[in-house]
Amino acid sequence: MFFLLRWVESLGATIIENLHALGEITLFAGRFFYWMVKPPYRFKLLFEQLYFVGNKSIFIVCLAGAFTGMVMAYQTYFGFKLISVDSLVGPVTALTLAKELAPVLTGLIVAGRAGAAMAAQIGTMKVTEQVDALEVMGINSVQYLAVPRILASVISVPMLSALFLFVGNIGSWLVGTKFLSIDEAIYLSKLGEFMFLEDIWQGLIKAFFFGFLISVIGTYFGFNVTKGAEGVGKATNLAVVWGMILVLVLDYFLTSFLVHIL
């Protein structure tokens, strides 16, 4: 009985702690909106972050996209062949990529790469008093450090997701038509028949929100670093874990909303 009570107590404490953190993250997002619209607008920093979040993720996104598309084509082909609808490999793969895999996997990749880096960069600046130096100079640290990173993510992640979709479809087409001998004309005509612009929009809208979420979490944990190098490591870890989990959770809610409006 005592053990059970301790377990319930511990569970309750964890839930409260996480809800508190979620509230803090929401407030932090509010600060981002406030400082985003206030001048000065630092475009140089935005472009630097666009390069870091966007350009530097291109290779890994292309690699992941290509292999995801190729694997999807293989798996659906062998399943669909059993019921003689292997001509639908193209649209099924494309729809899955457009609506789910491209935005979610891009989100997870960016959370692991850029979200973690944001937490580590800002966290290191926090423990070495660089953030304090900005504040003492009269520069708002959220405006200087968080706003360019969040804006860059919001712009980059949908573009990376579109790239993932494009490369994934090339991978799927390659495997489907060259290795699995699906007729190329049928593959493309079925793709045109079942794939619509709304499907692509659904994925891009999701990617937009994932970009926002990942960067808000990454910068939030960076600003809340305490206890030196150990704290930076912990913040980086938390940014990745929270970023990835919340991308998956948000994906469900966005899907249930977007299927009704698109």
């Binding site: 600046m125 070495t128 660089q130 304090d132 130096a133 003492v136 009269g138």
Partner: peptide, 17 residues
């Protein structure tokens, strides 16, 4: 705005690395 009247040397300099 007012903080621009101050200059501060931090314990470990706090240079932007």
């Amino acid at each position: 705005e007012f903080r621009r009247h101050f200059g501060m040397l931090f314990q470990y300099a706090a240079l932007f690395d």
